[in-house]
Simulated assay, not measured.
Amino acid sequence: MPSIRSLVAATFVASLSFAASAQAQEVEDHSNLTVGVGAAVIPSYEGSDDYRVIPVPQLRGKVHDFAFWTRGPALFVDVIPNRSDDGIDVQLGPVVGARFDRTSRKRTKDDAVAALGKLDTAIEVGGFVGIGKTGVITSAYDNLSARVTITKDVAGAHDSMIVTPAIEYFTPLSIRSFVGLGVSADYVGKKYGRYYFDVTPDQAVASGLPAYDRAGDGSGFRKINLNLTGGYSLSGDIRRGWTLFALGGYSRMLGDYADSPVVAIAGSKNQWIGAVGVGYTF
C-alpha cells in the first residue's frame, strides 16, 4: 500500500527492525521498543519530478513476542508470536493506514498538477501475511523475509485495492553496523488509476495537460521499488542504544500509470528518495 512517503518510511523502519529483532534474542520476555526519527527527501507527489523534505517519525517494538510497527502513516500488528527456535518468523495481522497524496496543492508544487484539484485522504485497511528466516546466507544473524500486504480504501477516496509484495534482506557487517536491500512492487485496482492518474476533459482545460483516461481501464502494477539501507551504532552495539541510519531508494513508474500526463509531462517515471535518521533501541 505504500505511497512515496510510505516507501521512505518503510525502508527506514526496516532498518530499525534489525536492531530491534537482534536485541530481542537477549531479552527474557522478548519485549523491546525502537523509536526513530529522520528527514527524507521525496517526490512532491507520486510521479513528480519536484522534491520536498519531510520528517519521518517511526515506532517499532514487541510485547511478549507480539510485534508491531509503523510504516509512514500506517500501523502493522503481527498477531503471531515469534517463538521459533529455528529462526522462522511467520507473520500475519491487520494493517491500517492513510494516503495523503495530492491532498494539498501547496505540497504538490507543480502548478499544472495542482490545477487538477485536491484529492481526498484515503484510509486503507487490510492485512498482511509473510515469512522470514534468520540465519540464511552470511551468518547466523542475517534475515531474509517475504511479505504480501493487501489493503482497500474505506474512506471513499480512490475506493480501490492495493497489493504490495515485498522481499527484504538484512545482514550485520559487525557488532556496530549492518546493511539491507529491499525490493517491492505495487499492484492497484482500476479505480486507483482513475483517481490518481486520469485527467478529465474539464481538468485538461484547467491544467493545460492533455486529457487521459487509460490508467483507469484496468488493474495493474503501477511501480517497482528498490532500496538500500545502512546503519551504524553510536553505542557500540546495534542491538541497543543509539544508531544512525541512511537510505537511498529508486522507484520506476510502470505502464499506463507512467504514461499519464501527471507523470510523463508534469513529472517523471524515475522516482528517487533519500533519508537519514537516528533511532534508539530500549
Rank of each mutant, 00 (worst) to 15 (best):
M1P: 09
S6I: 04
V13Q: 12
L16D: 04
S21P: 01
N32D: 14
G36R: 04
V37R: 01
A40M: 06
I42V: 15
D49K: 13
I54N: 02
P55C: 12
V56T: 06
K62A: 10
H64D: 15
G72H: 05
P73S: 06
D78C: 06
P81E: 06
G87W: 01
Q91V: 11
V96D: 03
D111C: 07
A112S: 11
L116C: 01
G117E: 09
L119V: 07
L119T: 12
D120Q: 08
D120L: 01
D120S: 12
D120T: 05
V125P: 00
F128G: 00
A146N: 05
T151G: 12
K152T: 12
G156I: 00
S160K: 00
M161N: 10
I167H: 08
T171D: 11
P172S: 06
R176I: 04
V179Y: 15
Y187L: 12
Y192M: 02
G193K: 04
A204V: 09
V205N: 14
A206D: 15
A206W: 08
G208N: 12
G208T: 11
N227T: 14
N227D: 15
G230N: 10
L234C: 11
W242F: 14
W242E: 07
T243A: 04
L247T: 06
G248S: 05
G249M: 14
S260A: 14
S268P: 08
N270H: 12
W272H: 15
V276Y: 09
G279Q: 07
